[in-house]
């Protein structure tokens, strides 16, 4: 029983996490590339042309997984934040700040592809659709998190303040989503709803899942690379960095 506990805390210390992360990065990077290639092949070559939307719909193979990831990453950040605040572990704060840029990237990607998709579908680059609007707000929340951490010099305070903000944000995301939807129904006719997706073919679902897995692997690889940089930055003076990491 005690061995599992010890292992946990062993990897929670930056000194032992650093080399482990280094070993994992190539695997996840390779997985991201392979999965993305497979997903794009399924999405662009195999999936049938949509009867109503023609070829333009194929952007969903990037758009939908990116939206999923952007929401999922925010939840993961909140999870690390809760862990960091309650157990005062250093690594969790580093993980949160390592994930934020990737989350912001996916939120932006989702907005961008959504807008590209919207032009042929709705005839406008931007529509005040409930999902699109909520996604935009999620993007703002990511930016706020990154800006807050960048503005605080003391890393310990930056971690804690960021953690509080991430938790406040994660409580608010559903409220914001609900309120935007409410607002949207009040102004019916002003927008087209995206909620009624056409029934999906199996190949489409497979393509989307492959892409989601690719993004997942990419996120893990990027977070690990970034966490390694953060660990080096913060522990520059400690003995183990001088001994091992500087080789």
């Amino acid at each position: 029983m005690s061995t599992s506990l010890i292992n946990w805390f062993k990897f929670a210390s930056p000194a032992s996490f650093y080399p482990m992360a280094g070993r994992l990065v190539p695997w996840f990077s390779a997985a991201a590339l392979l999965l993305a290639a497979a997903g794009l092949w399924v999405g662009l070559a195999i999936a049938p042309t949509d009867a109503q939307q023609g070829e333009g719909y194929r952007i969903i193979f990037v758009h939908v997984p990116a939206s999923w990831m952007s929401m999922f990453i925010y939840c993961v950040m909140a999870f690390w934040s809760a862990l960091g605040l309650s157990f005062n572990t250093r690594l969790s704060g580093m993980m949160t700040s390592a994930l934020a840029p990737t989350g912001a990237l996916f939120a932006f990607l989702s907005l961008w592809t959504g807008s590209l998709w919207g032009k042929p579908m709705w005839g406008a680059w931007w529509v005040w659709d409930a999902r699109l609007t909520s996604q935009l707000i999620l993007f703002f929340l990511y930016l706020g998190f990154i800006a807050l951490q960048a503005a605080i010099d003391d890393p310990r305070r930056a971690d804690k303040a960021g953690a509080i903000l991430a938790l406040v944000g994660v409580v608010n995301v559903p409220i914001i989503y609900f309120s935007v939807q409410w607002w949207n129904t009040l102004h019916q006719g002003a927008s087209v709803s995206m909620t009624k997706a056409p029934s999906m073919a199996h190949t489409m679902l497979a393509g989307m899942l492959l892409m989601a897995l690719a993004f997942w692997a990419y996120t893990i690889a990027m977070a690990l690379i970034r966490v390694r940089c953060i660990i080096l930055e913060r522990e520059l003076t400690s003995e183990w960095v001088k001994k091992n990491a500087m080789e």
Binding site: F140, G144, L148, L165, I176, F178, S179
Partner: peptide, 26 residues
């Protein structure tokens, strides 16, 4: 959260305004 932080005024708006959306909508 932004107490004593560089450029806290602008930062405060960036953090808080998105959270004001539900109140604004209702």
């Amino acid at each position: 959260l932004t107490l004593g932080v560089r450029g806290s005024g602008v930062l405060l708006s960036l953090l808080i305004l998105p959270l004001y959306i539900p109140a604004l909508i209702f």
